[in-house]
Amino acid sequence: MTQEDNTDARLKGRVKWFDPAKGFGFVVAEAGGSDILLHANVLRNFGQSSVADGARIEIAVQRTERGMQATVVFRIEPPEETAAVPLADFDDIDPEEMANAPLEPARVKWFDRAKGFGFANVFGKPEDVFIHVEVLRRSGLADLLPGEALAIRVIQGKRGRMAMEIHAWESALPR
């Protein structure tokens, strides 16, 4: 990309850091170069309010007067180092049962990153679904906002219904 070229280019990289409270973060391209600004509005257009540090990301970027900036998010994959972290709550659950659990559309009731957990409501079901911060990280997210729409894979855990996977809400829509 030349200095004069401000058309969107597609690239892959890793999230250096993202702060949902500040509403932005930065991506480092696989090919190197300067940091790329990732604004919360670009993430929201993708259907997420946050992204985990270290997550792999595919974005369109544009050179602006203030540097490189993401304009579109195409894909986010959870950070590799947290993808394999086991949760004791899943120890006694058949892996095939977990893999075959359907994605269900839900809304975040509340989530407290400092406490490490929160709850969501699945549409049409009365009971809350527990969301652990480690499940959030494994899903490539850093935080959730009240009212945020999600698609979650829910299992019956030792203490009730709990999310084991979280996606953008569009994933749960019938095709």
Rank of each mutant, 00 (worst) to 15 (best):
G25M: 05
F26T: 03
F26W: 06
F26C: 03
F26Y: 05
V27T: 13
V27I: 15
V28R: 00
V28P: 02
A29P: 15
A29Q: 05
A29L: 05
E30P: 05
A31F: 07
G32P: 11
G32I: 05
G33M: 05
G33N: 03
G33Y: 05
G33E: 02
G33W: 03
S34F: 15
S34A: 13
S34G: 13
S34N: 15
S34K: 11
S34E: 15
D35C: 04
D35V: 02
D35A: 02
I36V: 03
I36E: 01
L37W: 07
L38D: 02
L38V: 09
H39A: 11
A40G: 12
A40T: 10
A40I: 14
A40L: 11
N41A: 11
N41H: 14
N41L: 06
V42K: 02
L43E: 02
L43C: 08
R44A: 13
R44D: 13
R44T: 07
N45V: 12
N45P: 09
N45Q: 15
F46N: 03
G47Y: 05
Q48A: 14
Q48E: 11
Q48Y: 15
Q48W: 14
Q48I: 13
S49D: 15
S50E: 05
S50R: 00
S50A: 11
S50I: 07
V51E: 07
V51N: 07
V51M: 06
A52F: 00
A52M: 00
A52K: 00
D53K: 08
G54P: 07
G54E: 02
G54M: 04
A55H: 05
A55G: 10
A55V: 00
A55W: 01
R56Y: 10
R56I: 01
R56E: 11
I57H: 09
I57L: 09
I57Q: 01
I57Y: 04
E58N: 07
E58K: 05
I59E: 03
I59Q: 02
I59D: 04
I59A: 03
A60L: 13
A60F: 13
Q62L: 08
Q62P: 09
R63T: 10
R63C: 09
